[in-house]
Design a protein around this nucleic acid. Structure first.
Lengths: 174, 174
DNA sequence: CGATGTCTCGCGGTTTTCGGACATCAATGA
DNA sequence: TCATTGATGTCCGAAAACCGCGAGACATCG
């Protein structure tokens, strides 16, 4: 069911774990964020939620660029003011909202997250929703780990998940 | 994939074969036309092609209203200048375009139509596409009949198909 | 013989249905 | 200790069903 395609700006920002792709809309809200080697995935997720998407290379709003650089530089609260906007089902929206409520430096298990949104048994569903989060890092899906402490999975690669958690732990062991 | 719903204006115009429903968009193009007793079908087809649709009661552009009244009054060329806009697959678009090329007063068989769009064997598929034409009467799906001359089917009811063809034959037998 | 009718089968898009797969986890039973 | 199972939301691909047909094979009937 084709509707006219939505147009987003795609910017690239350097980071210690590789270049980061950021897609922002006309109002400066972040619609997607992923690592450079997963550009295909980023496009797919956008298409899934919005239909045909046109990504034009360009510069994200300074506020967004600054926040990304600050975060990777160590300012873990840098994303607090950044506006993200997503499509997705009601369930997914709930999961992603719950993710943003996890403070940097802490983690939750998939079960805890499921309980937090009122569906304590929808544990695997939370995993799925997590995995189809279009806005990586800012919506911190990397802060969700297995009940027994293993990292389980991460769309950007477990290496990066480990790095992000260590970065947020600020030297403390995780 | 929920996008914000498209908004169309729904008007009702009297005709000798019952009230006619016309959905037009903001630019005055006709997006759907059907008979009053098939409103459900009209909504379904719109939804299929555009996703969620909001129909607000209102007046269609005068040009459209005039054309509809003129056609039923006997001016068979009244629709020539009317702009229609449809969704649908490539195949459906091809079929619907071919339909508009059939002059009033003439008919084609499903096979002829299939041949006209270059898929001589897609005969039943043409029937299907015909049956899911959202813009009745203006896109004259009623001008397609069986190879042996029988009327076969019509979404608005065979009675109306018969009436329309007689109307267009202008007194000649059909 | 010809006109007519009924049946059967193949045709080709589109829509629907269905069955997995999954970034889990707690409880069960061997 | 370890494999199994059930609960849950979503996506995706494959397969099946659906038809506004049409041509050909036969039967029937004056």
């Amino acid at each position: 069911m084709p509707r006219q395609s939505i147009i987003l700006t795609l910017d690239r920002i350097g980071s210690p774990v590789g270049e980061v792709l950021v897609a922002t809309d006309g109002e400066g809200a972040v619609r997607a964020l992923d690592f450079h080697d997963y550009e295909e995935r980023l496009r797919r997720l956008l298409r899934r939620h919005y239909g045909p998407v046109e990504l034009v290379q360009g510069r994200a709003p300074e506020a967004v660029r600054t926040a990304v650089e600050a975060y990777f530089g160590g300012d873990l609260a840098a994303f607090d003011g950044v506006v993200v906007k997503t499509g997705g089902t009601v369930f997914q929206q709930a999961v992603w909202a719950a993710l943003r409520a996890i403070p940097a430096g802490e983690t939750r298990s998939y079960g805890q997250l499921a309980a937090a949104i009122g569906s304590p048994k929808a544990v695997r569903a939370v995993g799925l929703a997590n995995g189809s989060n279009p806005v990586g890092v800012i919506v911190p899906c990397h802060r969700v780990i297995g009940a027994n402490g293993t990292l389980t999975g991460y769309a950007g690669g477990l290496e990066r998940k480990r790095w992000l958690l260590a970065h947020e732990a600020g030297g403390r062991l995780i």
